[in-house]
Amino acid sequence: MELLTHILGAIATVILAFVVGMSYGGIVRKITARVHNRIGPPWYQNFIDAFKLYGKTTAIHHGWMQIMGPAFLMVSSVVTLMFIPVLTNGGWFPNLNFEGDLIFLLYLMVFGPLGMALGAGQTGNPNSAIGVTRGLSQMVGFEIPWVMALVALMIQFDTTSITGLMEAQAQSGTWNMFSSPFAFIAAVLAMLGMFRYSPFDIVGAPTELASGPVSENGGKYLFTMMSSGSIFAFVKLTLYVDIFMGGADNLVILLLKTFSIYMIPVLYGIVSPRYRTEQAIRFFWGWPLFFGVLALIYASIF
């Protein structure tokens, strides 16, 4: 019985993440269009795209690794979702929150991109591999300030678990974004790279690489990748809300908080041109790294 509620809760979580992630994607397209002085697609355009892809039949494949690529990607986003407390009190989403910690999460998050990179590699399209190398290089860039922010939180509150950090915020009554501001700044700067909007969108490079890693994929493959991307966006936003903004008691607050934090990379991206890969890496090892070091110093003093 307990197992059944767990499984049902997990499915509910995945559906929630899918719906929210997809809607956010659509809203972003709309906002981008408005900034560009276009009308833009409706907010539910992403659903239409996704279900159109799902309905298409696939004619060709390049081998088993390509087929496994999307599945690997899904594993990463769904399993990380299982480890992130969606609401502070658990509620309908009693997942595996207590079974893993932040460092585990960091490593699980790269599981998917690496598996997907392998799938992309088997298609033989050079653009896929170029996109992957850019993506991995950029990841090395933003992971450093991101990890610094996390380590700063860990040493400040003597815990490495997400639930522990949420409890610490509930007890003190202040959000971590105020009690450890430098960590928050470093984490937000790292987030710019994590979401791959401009100026860090050279990975997909929509105009010249034909979407980078996902080129050569269509139909159900692309549908799976797209939904995985949406779920993963939700995962990352919820993680930020959980560790920096005290989590959320109910869905409305969760949506408010995640959306407001989502606007940071989106709005920054709309008005930015694109960095080359090495420029992106150097960007992350500049100010974000500086704030990361500040966060570490701040956390070890207080």
Binding site: T58, I60, H62, I67, M74, G124, N125, P126, Y221, T224
Partner: peptide, 24 residues
């Protein structure tokens, strides 16, 4: 998800070599 991607899909698809791609 592996079954999801493969089910109903795999029989219809055929293997093509890595030369059979559309690059740019």
């Amino acid at each position: 998800f592996f079954v999801f991607v493969v089910a109903k899909n795999f029989k219809k698809t055929r293997y093509v070599s890595t030369k059979d791609i559309s690059s740019s």
